Each structure stands twice: as C-alpha cells, then as structure tokens.
Simulated assay, not measured.
Amino acid sequence: MPAPMSGHSKWSTIKRKKGATDAARGKVFTKIAREIMVAAKEGGGDPDGNPRLRTALNAARSANMPKDNQERAIKKGLGELEGVSFEEVLYEGRGPEGTAFVLEVLTDNRKRTVPELRHIFGKNGGEMGSTGSATWMFDHKGVVMVAKEKIDENALMELCLEAGAEDVQDEDEVWVVTCETSSFSDVESALAQLEPESAEIQWVTRPENTFPLEGGGAEAVARLWAKLDDQDDVQKVYCNAELPDEIMEAHGL
C-alpha cells in the first residue's frame, strides 16, 4: 500500500470551513464558483455527463453554497450569462525546509497573479519555481474518498476493480480510492451511488518524497501554505510536507 497521501484540497477539507467567518465563506464560494464555471465550459452543464462539474457541485453543496450561485456559475461557464473568462495554470515552488508546492490556479490575469504568488513565496521563506521543479515529486491521480459507513472494504474493492481503480486505502473514517487520471471518470461514476466525501484529480506526493516536519519548520511551512491557500486565484494547494494536525488546523488548513 502507498503511504498516506500528502496534499491539500479545498474540496476535501471544505467541512472545516462551515463555521468560518462570512469573509472566509465568501472566498470558498468564489473558488467553487470558478471551478463550476470552468467545468461547465469544458464539459457542458449536465453533471451526469460531466464528472468535473459533478465534483464541483458536490463541493458547493458541502459548503452550503446557495443553489442560485451554483446555477449562475454554470450559466456563465456555458456563455449564457456574461462573465469573466478564466485560464487554468499550474505553478510550482519551494517552501521553507526545502518543501515542494504545486498550485492549481484559475486566473483571468496572469500578470496580476504571478507577482502576487511570487510575493507570497518570497515573504514566507520560499520561491517560485520553473515548470517541473516540484511536480516530479508528485503523481497526478484520481482520488475518491468514501465514508466507511457507506460500504465495507470487500464490496468497495469489487466495485473499484471493475471500474479500473488502482488502490483502496484505509484512512480514519474514510476509504481513499486512487486511480489513473484516465480511469477517473469510470471510477467516480461507479462510486457516485455512495455519495463520496470528495472526488477529484489531485497531485499526490510520491512516498519517497514525503517530508514529515514538526516544530518551527512545520509552522513556517504552514504559514506559507495558508497564505497561498488564501490567495484568490489559487484553487488548490499541494505540498509534500506532512504536518501535525494541530498545526494544520491552527492555520485553517
């Protein structure tokens, strides 16, 4: 079995944000709306035939995002309402202690986004990197998280094998199913009946590149992580550091 995943996703930790301030909730809504728009633009407005849109709408429901907001974002993505056009970009960088960061970004203006990200890295002990400087430490995988109460391991394994999944891991209260990105649509569809906690394509740290940290080093990485996560154009942040839960939670991660 691979080591537990190291990474961070706005969708998979959305439940922690439910009690957040209105300002924080507004940021979450903005990020989800952008994802809905891009998903609809790419794959159409029917979630049944668009796994990426289905995933984004599940995140919206988990975050208690109003239905009107969801529908408006879909219409903007389809061009039925006037809206800004967003571009998907991947950025990479290094953080304190030599940690690696991968950022999935949706921006309408790279000339604004890049200096802001460079500033955040520089002020928090890191630096922006070139293409490939961090992603080599990660694998791009489909990841589906299913609550254990929904299904037992044997039944889940049977479903997953038929759909083309690679692995099922036991992590606390959830099963974590991983697959190649080419199989994600089939795996996500096969498990949709179980109402997964999250289902998305992620950058998963390779076991040999996982970086456990504690103390001051962990705090420094968490500060940078939180600043990047808070930047408006950043949709998802992945880092190869494994930090203590209490430090992650203290920084809202």
Rank of each mutant, 00 (worst) to 15 (best):
I32W: 02
W175E: 07
E195T: 10
P51Q: 04
Q70L: 00
G83V: 02
A39E: 08
T135V: 13
G45N: 09
K236Y: 13
M1H: 12
K111F: 09
D229F: 12
R52S: 07
A134P: 00
E195M: 03
L161H: 11
K148E: 09
N240A: 08
P96F: 07
S198N: 12
D170W: 06
G132K: 03
E87C: 02
A60P: 05
K27R: 15
E200R: 01
K15C: 06
K76N: 00
E188D: 10
A39R: 03
I201R: 05
I247S: 07
A226E: 11
A63I: 04
F184R: 03
N58D: 04
Q235R: 13
E82F: 03
D233L: 09
P51D: 07
E35K: 07
L224Y: 08
D232A: 14
W203Y: 15
M145N: 06
W203N: 12
A59P: 03
S185Q: 09
N154S: 13
N124S: 14
E127H: 10
A163T: 15
L53E: 07
P96M: 07
L106I: 01
D48R: 11
P66W: 00
L156V: 04
E219K: 09
H8F: 15
D230W: 06
R61W: 01
F101G: 07
K141I: 08
K75H: 00
V204I: 15
R112Y: 10
V102D: 12
V204C: 15
R54W: 07
W225P: 04
L106Y: 11
V144G: 01
S198G: 08
L243Y: 13
R110K: 14
E171K: 12
V84T: 05
W175V: 09
G216L: 14
V102Q: 08
V234R: 05
L224P: 05
G95I: 11
H8S: 13
L117W: 07
D68Y: 02
E173L: 10
K67H: 03
S189M: 01
T210C: 08
L57A: 00
A218G: 12
S6L: 14
R118V: 13
A56R: 03
E87Q: 13
D46F: 01
A192K: 05
G93I: 08
E200M: 02
R54I: 02
A218P: 12
F184H: 11
E162Q: 14
M157Y: 08
V84H: 00
D48K: 09
R61T: 07
K141D: 14
R223N: 13
F211W: 11
T107W: 02
M5G: 15
A3P: 05
E197L: 04
C239S: 14
E42L: 08
M157T: 11
K27L: 15
R25W: 01
E149N: 06
